[in-house]
């Protein structure tokens, strides 16, 4: 592909998902609507997908970013599991962003494993959107 800066202008494709046994979907649905209003193409993995399911949907749908939300304290095992599956499927470039009830002490642990954001309750949507845009650009640059 000819290298132009146009790739930076395309719409972000984002998959929002709760990759564990967690039905608390208020946050994820609010985010899905907010991402859509921010001009992104939003896919929702529905409830109760496994981390593998989420990674497969992300790859099949060719998304730029996977936004994960959990309120059930399973983030330390489930988020890295999604990341692991993406790698296994040869899609390490897909960016993984986390959020939910995440104790501050866990954020560094997630960051270290390549999961960024890790936003807690009360985070302004604007900040989350800004972060998603930033990591999507990072992915596009990687893909070039």
């Amino acid at each position: 592909m000819e290298r132009t800066d146009d790739y930076m202008k395309r719409r972000i494709r984002i998959l929002v998902a709760k990759p564990a046994l967690d039905g608390h979907d208020r946050g994820v649905l609010v985010l899905a609507k907010a991402f859509r209003d921010a001009g992104m193409e939003v896919l929702y993995a529905g409830l109760l997908p496994t981390p593998e399911n989420v990674a497969r949907i992300a790859v099949d749908e060719d998304v730029d970013v996977v936004a994960l939300s959990l309120h059930n304290s399973a983030h330390l095992s489930a988020f890295p599991e999604v990341k692991k599956w993406l790698k296994k499927l040869g899609a390490s470039d897909i960016q993984v962003v986390g959020g939910g009830i995440i104790p501050p002490a866990d954020r560094a642990k997630l960051e270290k494993q390549g999961i960024t954001g890790n936003f807690g309750p009360g985070t302004p949507l604007e900040l989350v959107i800004e972060h998603v845009r930033k990591v999507a650009k990072k992915k596009w640059e990687m893909d070039q």
Partner: peptide, 22 residues
């Protein structure tokens, strides 16, 4: 905990990381 709420045992594959958490 979540596995119990979804009718799964502690040794279910899906219960991993969630036993006794919530």
């Amino acid at each position: 905990d979540m596995p119990t709420l979804y009718g799964l045992d502690a040794n279910s594959e899906r219960a991993h990381g969630e036993v006794g958490k919530c």
